[in-house]
């Protein structure tokens, strides 16, 4: 029977919603136990949030000043020291998990399953390739299964649990060759998180400038939505990179996705295929985004947004 270890993603204070999504994926493994490991400098608060996720057998709290930042080269040897007790080691397919898990898999001499989107059996999974334009069903070879979980494919598990929290010490040598210098966030902490939001309002190159993006932010605030963007908008400097949606940005699954001035390149669509309802506003009636939008409206976004705001008021 499967014994699963999930590596928690957090910022030192708050557990990231991705962890509860990995839990939902783990529930498909008919596991005998599912444990969550929290690596932190001081992680009591995060461990408690992890313990509240339904279905968790136990939370392991590994506190060490070296664990203040989620640095793969420092976390990987500690996880490898734990791994032999488990059949599966899973992390979310966010930049955190993508950076970390291949390092573990390589040392364990097993391949990794990236972006698990469906569990068929404890060793058989579906995952997307070619920006989600094809899906492969893969079987992991013998040994520990190391994988990342595509968060847009699983909802967050309930938070009605109360698992025990066990402090662990892991005595392995940690490298000094990798040092955290700084983290610059785009300071939109008061807005909903793009990867967790129920609604997302997104702008593309058609928005035209940083100043013009204000109309996107204002509409998002009215709807209580997070703000997304196409790569072209990010590359043009209209909006910081952590807003990028798509194959190489964030893969999201909000209930409502509203795009303004985005053409709908396959790399962008890869990020929104799991959205509940897609709305597209574009002045070009032939824009490919209309091929997948549930509701398309042809027109100038600068005329449509004020009308929308009026209708919503």
């Amino acid at each position: 029977m499967a014994k699963v270890l999930i590596i928690a993603e957090h910022d030192g204070k708050k557990l990231n919603g991705s962890t509860a999504r990995v839990m939902t994926c783990a529930q498909g493994l008919s596991a005998e136990s599912v444990e969550i490991a929290v690596f932190a400098a001081e992680g009591a608060a995060v461990a408690e949030q992890a313990a509240a996720i339904s279905g968790v057998t136990k939370v392991l709290l590994i506190e060490n000043p070296a664990n203040e930042h989620a640095t793969a080269a420092i976390l990987a040897p500690q996880i490898e020291a734990l791994a032999s007790e488990y059949s599966h080691v899973l992390a979310p397919s966010t930049t955190f998990g993508k950076d970390l898990t291949p390092r573990i898999a390589a040392h364990l001499a097993v391949p990794q399953i990236s972006d698990i989107m469906r569990v068929e059996s404890p060793r058989i999974f579906d995952r997307p390739i070619y920006a989600g334009n094809a899906v492969i069903t893969v079987e992991a070879p013998e040994g520990i299964v190391v994988g990342t979980v595509r968060t847009a494919s699983f909802s967050e598990a309930e938070k009605t649990g109360s698992a025990t929290i066990e402090k662990r010490e892991i005595n392995v040598e940690l490298p000094s060759h990798t040092r955290f210098v700084k983290l610059e966030t785009s300071g939109s902490a008061d807005r909903p998180d793009l990867q967790a939001a129920a609604k997302v309002v997104s702008g593309g190159r058609g928005v035209g400038s940083t100043e013009n993006f204000k109309v996107i932010y204002d509409l998002a605030d009215k709807l209580g939505a997070a703000v997304g963007a196409s790569r072209a908008a990010v590359d043009a400097g209209f909006i910081p990179n952590d807003h990028q949606v798509g194959q190489t940005g964030k893969i999201i699954a909000p209930e409502l996705y509203m795009s303004f001035g985005i053409s709908g390149a396959i790399q962008h669509l890869a990020g929104i295929k799991d959205a509940g309802t897609i709305v597209a506003i574009n002045k070009d009636p032939d824009a490919p985004i209309f091929e997948i939008a549930d509701f398309g409206l042809v027109g100038d976004l600068f005329e449509i947004i004020p009308e929308l705001e009026k209708a919503l008021a």
Partner: peptide
């Protein structure tokens, strides 16, 4: 590095 939270800088040997 471009990470979900923003831009992280690492110093590496």
């Amino acid at each position: 590095r471009e990470i979900d939270a923003g831009l992280e800088t690492l110093s590496i040997d």
